[in-house]
Nucleic acid binder design. Structure first.
Lengths: 213, 213, 213, 213
DNA sequence: GATGAATGAGGGTTCATTCAT
DNA sequence: TATGAATGAACCCTCATTCAT
């Protein structure tokens, strides 16, 4: 589970020179942060995993916190693409199905980063909060879209915000608890066909829960 | 957020004299573990929060890990009561409604401990695993009950295990992300009426998602 | 090896009341000091071995150092009886044979205390030195007796002081290295017949080395 | 007494750069271990004596125990050369005289390390034992050589193993008790001529004790 | 760029001893 | 007498970071 993820961020458009080493550091940081959290992570552990000396590591990074922030920032960037609604005109069934698919895919392919994000959230998002005014606006917009669909009778009159929570909770579960999922189901999550199965089940469950037509 | 929880375990049947100090320590530990995780928690922080010196703290506890294990153990004990099925003869609507209610209540009243448990799970449950053979058996029994209900046409043919996951994920969300929930909804979670509302919404969503009749 | 020794000192003529507990403490102290030295010994370890709490222990003793000094004092007292020459008129063969016998007996029966003494000596006897003006005088007297025997042709002209060293070194070895002796010889030292054998061999060796007639 | 020994190990063939600091640490460790034993030695004391901060010390060493093991290992390595028999064909007088000479020289030149070794032995050799299978084999071979000499009438029929013990005990005495020896004899041990005298006396005593011809 | 070294703070834990009770 | 609790120092060791080279 620890190293299962080829989880480099989209480094297009960064400085050229460092990139390779930075990628290694980044990956190491993701693994260590996912395993031990920000407070529990040690630069020594990150350096070891990256095959660098601590001094070398600190040449590339500004500080442990900065590295953590960078990881978070990348996650957030990817997140926007994942969690954004496509055109609401397509109706809830298509839009939400797409969204759930993207979210599940992200859970499967980036469990470690997904977990870092969740852990940060669970702590009350102290670091994220000072990085960005939390996307309350964006979330409210999404809720409004859902409210609109409800008005138009395209889905049951659920509380839009709660529905978004539930969607997030269920899909996130497959990233956060990959180990448990595999353990209880006796199926390695990485299996491609199984991923499709899980995605279908989750989609159906969520859509049905909200009475999406 | 850090100290919002009067979260002492059921100390009935412990030694008498200790209890008060131990309770303070316990509470402090819960808060620190919830905030920083096992690795990130410092005995200094726990001692400070409990109003003790580090040496004093270590007079009462065996070690940081032992304290963590004790917290986990208490959570697990409570958990069993919360997550167990009542008599399946009552049918899924009643049984699951009760379960969800209990789970939501626990999320509301013990968010910190709930979060510690979730964090431990997210890490692959390294400590829990060596404390108890993970309750695979219990989970399988629950799945069997659901399967039975499905056979009897009392609910839609969902994957029982996945349904349990979803139930856990959604209810857990309200503990793990209490801050976010409050933030996005502009409602302090502690409000009694709102808790009922949330519980109802969650219950309806989950039952509908599984087509419970 | 650790607890093989019923090694209470001659407590005749001490205070009456304490005696029993003191004896237990004393014995525990001997074992711990023998195992870990003064610096390495912990009052916790002594208290544990004595079946007392640390507080209780400190009620009976003045301090760790004082306890150590007491042990040393007792050893020294016993030592005087062991290492003193009987009437030189009996000649070296009888006098030295007796001495060696007493010394070997002490080594066998009080290996732990013997070892504590040796360890103190090896450290340069910092504690002993401030307890007693080292018995240089006594040792010089013994050397003088030997010198006299040499003059009278009763033994070879060895350096008297060195001979005393050697006598001490060889007999002490069987206390200090009881474990090694047993290990290399495949014979448990405690065996009675073997003790006689060892004593005979040592005696013969030492007397022959000094050409005692 | 504490710092009287230029006791660096044979560092030929080690890393170059480190060597100086490591040497200082090594020497400091030898002194502290000799004075207080493994348990009683503090890294603070070692650091102080080496002129380093504790953190600095720990940059160079792995742990206190590892440092201790390293010291022991070096001693053992030197020991092999010292305590090994040369060709038995030369007969006991030459072979044993050489051995005693080497052993005495080591006692004179490395009293602290010699003492550390002896102290380790006195404790039952817990650390050494897990570093090396105790050299029972080697010792048995030496005993066999002596037995052979006895059969050939080259020395008296002493117990070979005991003779080896005595040889060890007597020569070791001059390392373990250097302070006492100097104190009782009013002669600083370091005196070159005196060392020769002591060695001669010891040699004669031991050979005569075993009736070596 | 990269390395070995240093630093000062802090990690968890145990220490010997004292003090109410 | 005995116990639970407290204390302040010390224990070994690791921390994130910096700095010459």
């Amino acid at each position: 589970m620890t190293a299962e993820e080829a989880d480099a961020p989209a480094t297009r458009g960064r400085a050229r020179k460092y990139t390779q080493v930075l990628g290694v550091i980044y990956q190491a940081a993701v693994e260590v942060f996912a395993a031990d959290g920000l407070a529990g992570a040690s630069t020594q552990a990150i350096a070891d995993k990256a095959g660098l000396s601590k001094a070398q590591l600190h040449y590339y990074i500004e500080s442990k916190e900065a590295l953590y922030r960078q990881v978070l920032q990348d996650i957030i960037n990817d997140w926007i693409g994942v969690f954004g609604f496509s055109d609401e005109a397509f109706g809830p069934r298509k839009v939400l199905t797409d969204l759930i698919q993207r979210k599940m895919l992200f859970s499967f392919e980036h469990p470690l980063r997904s977990r870092i994000f969740a852990a940060e959230m669970m702590r009350g998002a102290p670091v994220i909060r000072e990085m960005m005014g939390t996307s309350k606006q964006r979330t409210n917009q999404a809720a409004a879209v859902i409210q609109n669909w409800i008005h138009r009778g395209l889905m049951d009159p659920v509380d839009p915000m709660l529905f978004l929570f539930h969607l997030w909770a269920v899909t996130q579960f497959y990233a956060d608890h990959a180990a448990q999922v595999a353990y209880f189901r006796d199926v390695p999550v990485s299996d491609e066909k199984d991923r499709r199965y899980l995605t279908e089940q989750v989609t159906e469950f969520l859509l049905k829960g909200a009475g999406v037509r």
